[in-house]
């Protein structure tokens, strides 16, 4: 009973923290509720988020605001074509001591922050982009043969601009796979735009309040891992990912025609993790089929490699995910039939 009370308390904390964060971010950022939610899923699940949207939609602002709301060390890397990997990771520099002796000292790069904004990540060369790989996957960075662990929580938020393709380097699949979610930032509505104008063309606003401390964030991440997932739900996630392979028998026709490579094991893991964070933030101790379906698009959209036919037809990966969700039944056929009559 005490365990139940404890976990219920953590659920309650998560619920309230989520509400506070939303409220704090909302003071700065107008609209984009779904984007904020998805960024929070990534934070709670301990993953990284790739934000994609046109310039001026508040991607950077969102990340900066989030960093302000959390009592975490924030660092920003503006990716440019001439950015070097050592600019990201840091390097050993020769230092002359007061006694005249000289030695190498590690000069840590911006990657060593807790919330790292990789702004316009697709403007750097693949070599520089790959400097993020080890840190994102293993929460550690090797410099000069010495492995340096990142301080938890470590949360990378990358942004990219899909419009300006000149002088950009699309992220390789291996790099994309490291992002738990790919969040599409939509354009604001008219009302939101009006509010943005009202808020940003007047006197400047102050910084948002600190909402969560580092330990609280870690506790939330721990609670996320404790959320229960029933086997049928996990099986559903596995079936969903399996059906994204065009060679699979269960693959829907659109997948067969428009997809060259489907999602892998990391995609299935991401589905369940993201769904857990959704459940946690909604105050539930278990994951539902609906949670899986809800996180399917941000989790899978950057993990599906379209075929030539799919690209030529203009089939988006979001359409493919919709087809997958529609084609793969969540419950056994007999149960579904009995439940619907």
């Amino acid at each position: 009973m005490s365990e139940a009370s404890d976990f219920e308390a953590r659920l309650d904390t998560a619920r309230r923290a989520s509400a506070r964060l939303r409220e704090a971010i909302g003071e700065v950022l107008v609209g984009q509720d779904e984007v904020v939610s998805q960024v929070l899923w990534g934070l709670i699940a301990g993953g990284h988020v790739l934000l994609e949207g046109a310039p001026g939609l508040g991607k950077t602002l969102l990340v900066r605001t989030l960093a302000s709301c959390l009592e975490l060390r924030f660092s920003r890397i503006q990716f440019t074509p001439d950015l070097m990997p050592s600019d990201v990771t840091g390097t050993n520099v020769l230092v002359t001591a007061a006694d005249g002796t000289r030695h190498f000292s590690l000069h840590k790069g911006p990657i060593f922050g807790q919330i790292v904004l990789a702004d316009e990540i697709n403007r750097a060369t693949p070599k520089t982009q790959s400097a993020l790989l080890e840190a994102m996957q293993e929460h550690a960075c090797t410099i000069g043969g010495v492995r340096h662990a990142m301080e938890a929580p470590f949360f990378v938020l990358a942004t990219e601009n899909p419009i300006e393709m000149e002088g950009t380097y699309p992220l390789p699949e291996a790099q994309l796979d490291r992002f738990l979610l790919k969040v599409l930032v939509p354009s604001p509505t008219e009302d939101e735009m009006t509010r943005i104008l009202a808020r940003t063309t007047g006197r400047g606003m102050g910084d948002p309040p600190r909402v969560l401390a580092r330990d609280e964030v870690l506790a939330l991440q721990q609670a996320c891992r404790d959320v229960s997932v029933a086997e049928p739900v996990m099986r559903y996630a596995a079936r969903l990912v399996g059906a994204s392979d065009p060679e699979a028998k269960s693959a829907p026709p659109l997948v067969r025609s428009a997809v060259r490579y489907g999602a892998g094991v990391r995609g299935a893991q991401s589905l369940v993790l993201a769904a857990k964070s959704v459940a946690l933030l909604e105050g539930r101790a278990n994951v539902a089929f609906a949670d899986i379906q809800r996180v399917a698009k941000p989790v899978l959209r950057h993990r599906l490699i379209r075929s030539f036919e799919g690209e030529a037809d203009g089939t988006t990966t979001d359409r493919v995910v919709d087809a997958l969700v529609e084609a793969v039944p969540s419950r056994p056929e007999d149960v579904e039939r009995a439940a619907t009559r």
Partner: peptide, 28 residues
């Protein structure tokens, strides 16, 4: 019920290491 019952049944059968969440799931 957002699969609360399913999770509870399987958690009770011990097929899921629900940890702290187990009791909450059963209760829910």
């Amino acid at each position: 019920a957002d699969e609360r019952i399913t999770t509870a049944v399987l958690v009770r059968e011990g097929s899921d290491a629900g940890g702290d969440a187990r009791a909450v799931v059963l209760d829910q």
